[in-house]
Design a protein around this nucleic acid. Structure first.
Length: 616
RNA sequence: CGCGGGGUGGAGCAGUGGCAGCUCGUCAGGCUCAUAACCUGAAGGUCGUACGUUCGAAUCGUACCCCCGCAACCA
């Protein structure tokens, strides 16, 4: 089934599953992506949001060595925890999967072979440390020796931590394997490389918005955050080099050796494009993980096809230890509607460490693949690459080893996900780094979320319940109230379209909450009710319209509170569906309280929390 | 000269040529429906430094100082 609503693809960075996710992950990409997705769905757009666990690469094997386990055990354990965490925060992925699936491997192989055929993947030779004792090549991380500059011992092979100097291949004195302690030697090793110099010109055109596959012809300078564009442009101007896409590893996706050899036999690639030896060669994680953006939608497609409820056009949510899967009512069931549709818009969310991979490398991979694809099967390129800087803690990076960390699950269990969402979203490191400070967290939650937004809704509903029996059937909306509601909803939406979350909160959502409190005060409904009951009822009618507007506007940001409020008001949940634009205010004539009036947000005991968290 | 980002009242941030703004905090007043919440008002800044361009600079140029990211278990 097809529908005509605008297609929005939301690609969320794939976290390494070598540990638990901390608050920095939430701020970097998880929460912004979810808010954006929820908002787009409320606008009736057909959103496909995917991500998964990045299961390969050295960080995984390092963690496995540390815990004395196999990589696959590490991956399964932490993947399961990430799935639990995302379920707890109710992040609305259509699919959260992982890179160890057969589907992913198939798609990576496909992309690899396409790039090989169109000549963007070439062979090359590099030097790598080889351990005769272990009988294999070792990643830099597994080799240490003496720094030739400062003579410090036990330094890694790429940079000396002691003097900070970069080391060239072979400069390290007496290199030894960290695994066996035996000495290692530099040896030539043959690998595949992605030929970025060949893609450079197309990437320039891509940034300038001139690219064929990009319909809008708008420079990325106008769309991306200013500093994101500047950084990407800087990298590109420096000139790009060929980059290895295979490594000598044993924990990663294997090369499609058979298919490569067949292509050579059929003459579709040159004999010279075949490696002399495939032994121990695996696909480098940076090439493979981003390909998840292409493989996950296909996995989702398969799940939708085989799900009876989805085929009945019902909203589906399924959580297993393997994945999170969702289908929203009246969504398209065909992944190609997002990927092979020049009108679909692709938004990528990530932390700044991933900037180059998503602004240049991944578009390069797609552009290369598109060269060999038919006009109607070309992949859509990233429209906006939304990058956040880092959220620091105690003026330093979050760090596992230094125990400078706040666990995402723990903070949610202690304060609730809405409080965490509100604080983080209103303090995002959108243009510069920001800091997580406990005192600020408590102040922001208490003074803004609880005292302003929460208090307005509470004082209105309590008054309504106690003084008016929670029953009112009609009234007249005041022009100024209507005006404010409409302009604040519009403003919030405008900022969200531009992926400016703090602005959306402060110049939209909270502005409306402040207006509402002012209106309550100015009308003095508590005295009015004693002198003119009819007039008081009309004021209440207006207050209830404001509550209704807030119920709508908080929905993308504070989903738990929105649901709770819907229950109290006895209103239908605003349902995510890919057809109806709900982001508009409709006056509600009648409000009957069906649930008990409860607090939406709880105040935090500042003294207690500060003592607990900082010892002060 | 590796590439980038940032330095604005106590805190966090907006503002890219035209009277220096927002949220929080502080102080004073008001209100009492509400989670001691809400509303009004005030104090508080020579916009990192210096020179320059301009009728006019936080905003443009040049030089300099400081902090940070990109490369290390990390987003």
């Amino acid at each position: 089934m097809r529908n005509n609503s605008e297609k929005i693809f939301i690609a969320v960075a794939w976290p390494y599953v070598n540990g638990n996710l901390h608050v920095g992950h939430l701020a970097g990409y998880l929460l912004p992506a979810d808010v954006f997705a929820r908002y787009q769905r409320l606008r009736g757009r057909d959103v496909l949001m995917v991500s998964g666990s990045d299961c390969h690469g050295t960080p995984i094997t390092v963690q496995a060595d540390k815990e004395g386990k196999k990589p696959v055990e590490i991956v399964n354990e932490y993947h399961k925890r990430v799935v639990e965490l995302f379920d707890l925060y109710d992040l609305t992925y259509n699919l959260y999967t992982k890179t160890t699936t057969e589907n992913h491997k198939r798609v990576v192989h496909e992309l690899f072979l396409e790039l090989l055929k169109s000549g963007f993947i070439v062979k090359g030779v590099m030097k790598q440390y080889y351990s005769a004792k272990d009988n294999k090549f070792l990643p830099d991380r597994y080799v240490e020796g003496i720094c030739p500059h400062c003579k410090a011992k036990e330094q890694r092979s790429d940079q000396c931590e002691n003097c900070g100097r970069w080391l060239k291949d072979g400069e390290l004195i007496d290199p030894v394997s960290k695994l066996s302690g035996e000495s290692v030697e530099l040896k030539d090793t043959e690998h595949y490389f992605l030929d970025f110099p060949k893609l450079e010109n197309d990437l320039k055109r891509y940034l300038n918005g001139e690219f064929d596959e990009n319909n809008e012809k708008k420079s990325k300078k106008e769309i991306w955050r200013e500093w994101v564009f500047a950084e990407a442009f800087g990298w590109l101007s420096e000139g790009m080099e060929k980059r290895a896409i295979t490594r000598d590893l044993d924990w990663s996706i294997v090369l499609p050796e058979k298919e490569i050899k067949e292509l050579a036999k059929k003459g579709e690639i040159l004999e010279d494009q075949v490696l002399a030896n495939f032994e121990g060669k695996r696909i480098y994680v940076w090439f493979e993980a981003v390909t998840g953006y292409l493989s996950a939608p296909q996995e989702w497609n398969g799940l939708v096809q085989s799900d009876p409820a989805a085929n009945d056009n019902k909203t589906v949510y399924k959580k297993t230890k393997e994945r999170l899967f969702r289908y929203f009512k009246s969504q398209s069931k065909n992944w190609k509607d997002w990927w092979m549709n020049p009108n679909s818009k692709h938004y990528y969310f990530m932390g700044q460490d991933n900037l180059v991979f998503h602004t240049l490398m991944w578009p390069g991979q797609l552009i290369g693949a598109n060269k060999g694809r038919k006009a109607n099967e070309k992949y859509a390129l990233p429209y906006n690459v939304v990058v956040n800087k880092f959220l620091n803690f105690n003026k330093a990076k979050f760090s596992k080893s230094r125990e400078n960390i706040i666990d995402s699950r723990e903070i949610a269990e202690e304060f609730g996900t809405d409080a965490v969402r509100y604080f983080i979203l209103s303090n995002l490191p959108e243009n510069k780094e920001s800091n997580f400070i406990w005192e600020r967290f408590v102040d922001v939650v208490n003074d803004e979320l609880v005292a302003n937004l929460g208090n307005f809704i509470n004082r209105t509903l309590v008054f309504y319940d106690q003084k008016m029996m929670g029953k009112l059937e009609s009234g007249e909306i005041e022009e100024v109230v209507k005006e404010n509601i409409h302009s604040m909803i519009e403003k919030t939406g405008k900022y969200l379209e531009k992926v400016e979350f703090a602005n959306a909160i402060y110049h939209g959502l909270m502005e409306l909450a402040r207006f509402a409190n002012r209106y309550f005060n100015d009308k003095e409904i508590w005295s009015l009710i004693k002198t003119d009951k009819k007039a008081a009822e009309n004021v209440m009618y207006n207050l209830l319209q404001l509550v209704e507007a807030l119920r709508l506007i908080i929905r993308p940001f504070l989903p738990m509170a929105a649901t709770k409020l819907s229950k109290i008001l006895g209103r239908e949940e605003m349902e995510h569906s890919a057809s109806k634009d709900d982001w508009g205010f409709t006056e509600v004539k009648e409000t009957k309280l069906t649930g008990k009036v409860e607090l939406l947000f709880e105040k935090i005991d500042k003294e207690l929390v500060l003592k607990d968290k900082t010892g002060k």
